[in-house]
Each structure stands twice: as structure tokens, then as C-alpha cells.
Design a protein around this nucleic acid. Structure first.
Length: 527
RNA sequence: GGCGCGUUCGUCUAGUGGUCUAGGACGCUGGCCUCUCACGCCGGUAACAGGGGUUCGACUCCCCUACGCGCUACCA
């Protein structure tokens, strides 16, 4: 059976984390494949990895799975072109090098690193373009013997064209043209026999029958040398599409994991990070910058983001359908995606806009889904048993209904810990306590009066409490504001929150009374 | 240095020679709603990097400059 017309790949290095920019690249590949009914392949670029590949790959695969980006071939999936780890494909690369050597498109180079470097430096000093003299190029067996007799060791270099142009069409950039003479005789094989990126990448793209290479723009200048390799090997050229990179918030520098400290100086970025850190602290997650960092996908999963929100946001980072559509379901984005609507300029990562997608997606969730999302946070923070009791679930549901748009991240449920704390251990915000109770004698008196009618309230529902409170203020001849704040602070410890009647109903009659009594007692003690 | 890519509101973007006194979204902001906060609603702010062409007409085409970024590795 003929392979499908579209086969694309994403080739991560096993670094131990999934970078948000990488996700965007993978997403575009994935969408392109799904749109065309093609295949998306994951290949592991581990040619240069000393570390434990399996361990370093797991977070990347977990990240993709969480985001709903699935691959048709690759680690964990197998496929007709296995293995999908470059570290296990050395023989294939060695074979390709041999072929290149035999055809005269590559040569053994016996230069010593310092000799080569000296040539380069000389060129730089004279401000002329460096082109290797090929002094130590060995093309015959005699050459090899001679150089080896000198005790030299060899690597393999590409014997690049030195005239003419490399022309190709890029689906995002248009027609591209590079002078061949601008290319170096790149090394493709080290003296220990291991091969370098350009070689392995091209060989695998060929072997996997990759139809379209969709990757970040930093690879654009690499394309001529890769085309050279592919042509020299007699491979069919893939179609290229180079994506703009994802930039730092408010800058055109490429987003990098290493610069967290710097990003934290950006206000919006810091807000996001602090929001996450607050949640992480409460669930006892140790926030190491290696994994807990807004350029890494794990960060978002840990604090309760929705994969769909992240994907939707990333989709619009360098791509748009028209001048207004912003919300895309998976089906819609697969349906509408096309490479020709990709932007050419770098797109900077905007934490605020990401957050606005997240909020919208969160609000739209069904109540049951929301409860399930939020429960693990309460469990980790010690506010609920695992598994949560029916009582806890129904309380959580009430809170979520009342809190409504106030919860954007699943971890935000921890902002409402007052509903899970014991009456005697509730903490009061000092400022609110002073303003609404200690320094508010009239309000306090009203609070005492109200407290005394609460025991007689049979129906403690929000609707009924609404009535009771309104009747109360009417009879007292005061505004609602005179009583609401005092109650809120007394029973939640906080100055702000959602509707007071809902709060009272959720906390319940006994607890409300207990908390009011306790608050009043604390006021006495302070005076 | 050489080569390449890019440049519309603070940010993501729409715009492919006249419909652009440049549209949408996020943000910011004024007001309304209101028991606080949030939501919601109504309104506001704000951009074609600069200079030359081409053209009756340029955000759109060409050239130059500036700025940013990338490649120029026995990294990927």
C-alpha cells in the first residue's frame, strides 16, 4: 500500500522537559497531519545524549499525551520504520556515510582540530568568508595511508558545492535561494563513528518517508546542507515549512528555559508564576525551576490548566483563520488549519492571553468535570480524603457553583479553604478583621443581633437567607452594606468572596454561629 | 564579518493597490450593575520602523537604511 501523502515528524531531544515552543511546533505538525489524514511521527533525536534517555523522554511523552497530541509512530507506538531512537540507528547512518563517501559527496578529513581552526581564524581576521582549503582531504587510499602514517585521525565532511545556488520553496516563506559557496564542508561523522544531526536527520526523514518538514525558523539556514545530503543520497526531497519562533513575553528573543530569572522581571510573567507558585505551595509540590517553570508544560498541568486552553492559545501564536475567530475545538482546528496562514514574524508568548483562554475554557466545563478537576487539589492540600466523600463532593459542587468565574485554574479551589477548615482554626485577614469588626462598633452590634436570630432560622438556603437578611436590614433601617461585610469577615476570615448568602448556606447554620461567636470573642480580646 | 529571515496598537493578529479617517482579541482604562470581589454590559486608549521610488492612488509592489533574530559547531 502506498504511504499517505502527508507524513510529518517532530523530533525532540530527550531533555527531561517539554518546552512550550516545542509544543507549538509539534502542534502545527500534528494539525497538518490530521488535517490531511496523514501521519504524525515522533522520533527521538538522542545522538548526543549521555543521560538516561528513557528517563528524559518520559516527561515529553507525558506532556504530549496530556495535551492530546498523539503520534502514529514512535516511542511506545512502534511502527514500520522502527527503531525511532536515533541512538539505535547507527548502522543506518554509517551506511549512508559510506554511500556518500563512495559517491564522492563526502570525504575523510585528516586535519587536526587546531589546523582547521587556524584556517578559520585566518579567514576571520582578514574578514573574508571562510572556505576550507581541503588540505587534509583524503580521496584515495594513498592519501589515507599517508595521513595515517603521520598519526592523524579522520572525520567525515560533506564535500559541498562551491558554486551555484540552492533553491527551494518554503510553504511559509516562499521561494528561497542560497549560494552554495556560503556553505561549509560540514562534519557528518565524528572520529568515533557517531554521526551528526544534519546527517541523521536527513537520513531518517528519508527512511521514514517524511513528506513535509515543518520546523522552527532557526533551521532555515540549515536547509541547503540538508538538501545537499538528501540529493547526494538520492532521496526525494521533503517539502519545507519554517515556522517563526515563540518569543519571550514583550520581546523578540527566542523563549528559553534558561532565562526564568529574567522573565520574572516581566510583570505578566511574574503574575503567572506567582499564581502557580501559590498553588504549588499549598499542595506541597516543590517548585524546582527545572520543572516548575512557565516555559515548561508540566507547570501548567501541575496547577490545573486545561490542555484544550493551552492548545487553543498556542494555535493562535503564529496562526490565524481570519480577523475574528479565536475559539477552536480540536475538530475545528484540524478542519481549518493550513500552513499558508502561518505568520512570518516571531510571536511573543503572552501569559495574560493564555490565562484568558484558560478562564474561558474552565468556565465552560460541565460541573461534574469541574468537580473532578478540582478534587485532587483539595486532597493534596489535606482538605479532603482520597477518595473524596459524597459530602465533600457536594460541598465542592456548591462552592464551584457559587464561585463561578472566580475559578480559572483547578488549583484556585484552594483560595476557598475556609470552607474546609474547622471553625476554631479559621484565620482572619488582619486588615479586614480590624476594619469590619474591631473598628466597626455599629456593625458589630448588628452582627450580634443577627447572630441571635440565626438559631431560629429553619431554612438555611441561600434564597431564604437572602430574604432574612433583607428583612433584617429593613427593620434595622440600615443598608445591606452595614451587615454583609461583618458577617463575611466573621465566617470566612476574608474581605472578599462570592455571594454572602451562598457562603452562609454552604458553611451551614451551626458553623456560621460558631464562627460569629468566635470572631466576636476575638474582638473582645483585642480591646 | 558573511549569508538568511523578520518588522501593523503594549501583546496576539486581520489586511495580498482604492471598501483603512486600519478591523477583532488580550491588556489597560471610564461608567453601569452591586453586599465585597469576580462576571456581564456600554464607552475609551493605542499601530502600518524610517527614507526613497513605482502608481492617478501604497499598510499592501521595488530599493536603501535602521532595528531584531537566526545560521556560519566534531550542538540539536
Amino acid at each position: 500500500m502506498a504511504p499517505p501523502l502527508v507524513r510529518v515528524r517532530f523530533a525532540p531531544s530527550p531533555t527531561g522537559y517539554l518546552h512550550i515552543g516545542g509544543v507549538r511546533t509539534a502542534l502545527f505538525n500534528w494539525l497538518f497531519a490530521r488535517h490531511h489524514g496523514g501521519e504524525f511521527i515522533l522520533r527521538v533525536d538522542d545522538t548526543d545524549q549521555a543521560r538516561n534517555v528513557h528517563e528524559a523522554l518520559q516527561p515529553i511523552m507525558d506532556g504530549f499525551k496530556w495535551l492530546g497530541i498523539d503520534w502514529d509512530e514512535g516511542p511506545g507506538m512502534g511502527g514500520p520504520h522502527a527503531p525511532y531512537f536515533q541512538s539505535q540507528r547507527s548502522d543506518i547512518y554509517a551506511e549512508a556515510v559510506k554511500k556518500l563517501l563512495e559517491a564522492g559527496h563526502a570525504y575523510r578529513d585528516f586535519s587536526k582540530p587546531e589546523e582547521f581552526a587556524a584556517e578559520r581564524q585566518a579567514a576571520e581576521k582578514e574578514k573574508r568568508q571562510f572556505i576550507y582549503s581541503r588540505t587534509w582531504m583524503a580521496e584515495t587510499d594513498e592519501d589515507v595511508k599517508r595521513f595515517e602514517a603521520e598519526g592523524r585521525e579522520s572525520i567525515v565532511r560533506l564535500k559541498m558545492h562551491r558554486e551555484g545556488k540552492c533553491e527551494f520553496h518554503d510553504l511559509v516563506r516562499g521561494d528561497m535561494s542560497f549560494e552554495w559557496r556560503g556553505e561549509q564542508d560540514h562534519v557528518i561523522q565524528r572520529k568515533d563513528g557517531s554521526c551528526l544531526y544534519h546527517l541523521t536527520s536527513v537520513v531518517d526523514d528519508g527512511a521514514f518517508e517524511i513528506s513535509h518538514v515543518i520546523r522552527a525558523i532557526e533551521h532555515l539556514p540549515n536547509t541547503p546542507r540538508q538538501i545537499f545530503i538528501a540529493q547526494s543520497l538520492g532521496l526525494e526531497l521533503p517539502i519545507y515549512a519554517h515556522l517563526p519562533f515563540v518569543a519571550e513575553p514583550g520581546s523578540s528573543n527566542k523563549l528559553s528555559k534558561r532565562k526564568l530569572d529574567k522573565y520574572l522581571k516581566n510583570r505578566d510573567f511574574k503574575v503567572l508564576y506567582d499564581h502557580g507558585e501559590k498553588i504549588a505551595e499549598q499542595i506541597g509540590f516543590s517548585a524546582s525551576p527545572e520543572t516548575f517553570n512557565p516555559v515548561i508544560v508540566d507547570f501548567y498541568r501541575e496547577i490545573g490548566f486545561l490542555p484544550d486552553a493551552i492548545i487553543n492559545y498556542l494555535l493562535l501564536l503564529g496562526w490565524s483563520l481570519d480577523d475574528k475567530t479565536e475559539d477552536f475545538t480540536r475538530e475545528a482546528m484540524i478542519q481549518d488549519f493550513s500552513l499558508d496562514r502561518i505568520t512570518k514574524a516571531p510571536a511573543s508568548f503572552d501569559p495574560q492571553k493564555l490565562m484568558s483562554f484558560q478562564s474561558r475554557y474552565m468556565w465552560r466545563l460541565d460541573m461534574d468535570e469541574k468537580v473532578e478537576m478540582v478534587l485532587p487539589y483539595l486532597e493534596k492540600a489535606g482538605f479532603a480524603q482520597t477518595p473524596a466523600s459524597e459530602e465533600t463532593r457536594s460541598r465542592v459542587k456548591s462552592i464551584l457553583e457559587a464561585a463561578n468565574e472566580r475559578i480559572s485554574l483547578a488549583g484556585d479551589i484552594l483560595d476557598y479553604s475556609e470552607f474546609f477548615q474547622a471553625d476554631h482554626s479559621l484565620e482572619y485577614e488582619e486588615k479586614a478583621f480590624r476594619k469590619r469588626l474591631v473598628n466597626a462598633e455599629a456593625q458589630r452590634e448588628l452582627l450580634v443581633k443577627l447572630r441571635n436570630i440565626l438559631p431560629g432560622v429553619e431554612d438555611f438556603s441561600a434564597e431564604h437567607l437572602d430574604q432574612i437578611l433583607h428583612t433584617f436590614v429593613e427593620e434595622e433601617g440600615v443598608g445591606m452594606g452595614m451587615i454583609v461585610h461583618a458577617i463575611r469577615v466573621a465566617i470566612t476570615g476574608k474581605a472578599v468572596g462570592f455571594g454572602l448568602f451562598e457562603i452562609m448556606a454552604i458553611i451551614g447554620k451551626d458553623a456560621c454561629i460558631n464562627r460569629i461567636d468566635r470572631a466576636l470573642k476575638l474582638v473582645d480580646q483585642q480591646q
